[in-house]
Design a protein around this nucleic acid. Structure first.
Ligand code: SF4
Length: 352
RNA sequence: GGCGGC
DNA sequence: GCCGCCAACATA
């Protein structure tokens, strides 16, 4: 709650003040020359446009930094990269500075910090350490990316996760796919993006869908008809957009046709089907009736929350996104204990 | 699934 | 019949 304070403050600082801040603290970020700018201007404009942000003009400032230092920006394709250097616009400079604090302060990110330290030179790290130290004590703030930034999920764990942590809509799609070895377009989209959000990597996703679809049509046809779309959803084709999984709203407002299995069970199932579905996850009749009552009042998300609470024995802040449901569930079922912390208590500060 | 190309 | 490209948007 306080890092955002710092971030906002730094962000609202005038460009000149930001520049001075960096100089005062001897942070190794240098603005690129105007000639450098001109030579890659079209590329920078292209990136800005892809983020539908104002195109950089003649006097906008860009910083050239090793791309390893701004993983968020690189992963999000929010910066132009050339020869290992990321060209960070002053508007995103916050990531650089805020990142410094995080990597130094957050114990959960020790691993990231080490990686960072091994990338820059000895002299630099020696020179930077005291600075970062000073800055951190001054601008102490919470870890924006608490926990795992990019948790991954093994293909083999999918079945268990589906049973324990998937919201009913995804759980339903998942098992329908397992049983029919196929899903119509709407279902592929809804489940596919959700799984991506869960942490299933592209290669595993392809393997997963191919293993199912392959049974009913042969892998050759699968690669021909469906593989491309999966890669596209992962941002690996065409425009290369890393699509956000569907929200509850989108799902509830969708209109599944005959043969479709997507949509929100609370919204689209018949009462008897919903009752049966809820019954299949060992829920008492009492709570089930309570849930159906919410459904009658068209409070689908509330009904979903009730289901969550009944199956997890924990309160929720309301469900508005399937992946939020999943994340919440994991936090409860799998107490997160970063291994990094286990073998770390001994040598947090190696440089001397 | 939709759009588009041959 | 063969093929490419698109949609999405919650969080702390
Ligand atoms: S409420 Fe949202 S998450 Fe729960 S089932 Fe309906 S769509 Fe899925």
């Amino acid at each position: 709650m306080e890092s955002s304070l710092f971030r906002n403050r730094f962000h609202s600082e005038a460009p000149d003040d930001q520049k001075r801040f960096l100089e005062d603290n001897e942070l190794p970020y240098k603005a690129i020359s105007t000639s450098d700018f001109e030579s890659i201007k079209d590329k920078l404009v292209q990136v800005a446009r892809s983020l539908n942000q104002p195109s950089p003009n003649a006097d906008s400032t860009f910083y050239k930094v090793p791309f390893e230092e701004v993983p968020e920006l690189v992963a999000g394709r929010k910066v132009y990269i050339h020869k290992g250097q990321a060209y960070v616009p002053s508007t995103q400079l916050t990531f650089l500075v805020a990142g410094q604090f995080r990597s130094k302060l957050s114990k959960a990110l020790v691993l990231t910090y080490r990686k960072w330290m091994s990338v820059i030179s000895e002299e630099e790290s020696d020179r930077l350490a005291p600075i970062v130290e000073a800055l951190s004590s001054r601008y102490l703030g919470p870890d924006y990316s608490q926990g795992k930034i990019k948790s991954e999920v093994a293909l083999q764990d999918m079945d268990d996760l589906a049973k324990t942590s998937f919201p009913l809509c995804m759980r339903h799609l998942f098992f329908k796919l397992r049983e029919e070895h196929h899903l119509k377009h709407g279902g592929r989209q809804q489940l596919g993006l959700f799984l991506k959000g869960v942490g299933l990597k592209l290669e595993d996703a392809l393997a997963f869908w191919r293993s199912e679809f392959g049974q009913k049509m042969g892998v050759e046809r699968f690669d021909k008809e469906y593989a491309y779309n999966i890669r596209h959803n992962y941002g690996k084709e065409g425009k290369r957009t890393d699509y956000t999984p569907f929200s509850c709203n989108k799902i509830i407002l969708s209109t599944p046709g005959v043969g479709d299995h997507h949509g929100c069970p609370y919204r689209h199932f018949s009462e008897e089907n919903l009752r049966a579905a809820l019954g299949s996850m060992h829920l008492g009749v009492r709570i089930v009736d309570e849930i159906l009552e919410k459904v009658r009042n068209r409070h689908y998300q509330v009904a979903c929350s009730l289901t969550f609470e009944a199956t997890h024995g924990s309160q929720t802040i309301g469900i508005n996104h399937p992946n939020q449901y999943f994340e919440q569930s994991r936090k409860i079922l799998q107490p997160k204990v970063p291994q990094e912390l286990a073998n770390d208590n001994t040598e947090t500060t190696t440089a001397s």
